[in-house]
Amino acid sequence: MQLTSMSLMRISVLAAVCIALNIGLNKIAVLLQLPVFMDTIGTILSAALVPLPFAILVGVVSNILGGIITHPAIPFYIGTQIVIALMAVFAYRRGWFERLPTALIVGFVIGVVSAVVSAPVTVIVFGGVTEAGATAINAILLAAGHNIWTAVLSGTLIISSIDKVIAAAIVWLLLQRLPDRLKLAHGSQT
């Protein structure tokens, strides 16, 4: 795949904006005390704006920078961002972000898969503590006698699926309003 300097510049600038969205919106969600992360809108949106390798890089770089700017725990979830980027690109290429119902289903599936991917990190590295809402659910389940894996997976599943459904709905809204020249064609490999 040969990229001209113009297209490489276009991809770099748009990818940088997607990174900025991940970091900026996550900080705003924290400031507004919303019970969601909002740190994957940029990654999901990047599926429609830049090619797959760059969409993955958006997730990776966002988490590295987020670890310095927002919270030190964020870089440990790089694997989750990679999975989200892969799933978002797959869904966008099949045109599943064209209509709201399919976009919401994609968001839900991304939420479930990302919960499964991030739960081991939450258990092994952070002892089951994560974002406040999920931690509260985990604590209740632990007190009820569930083991830490079941508790964390259940808590993360609930919060993550809500978070990703909201993120997918926002991305659908954004794609409706964005000019076509900014978006990649469906089925595009570049």
């Binding site: 940088a16 900025a20 900026g24 920078l65 700017i69």
Partner: peptide, 12 residues
């Protein structure tokens, strides 16, 4: 990626 990501993040 890195420089614009940080700069535009603050702008967003």
């Amino acid at each position: 990626f890195v420089t614009q990501g940080v700069a535009v993040g603050a702008m967003v």
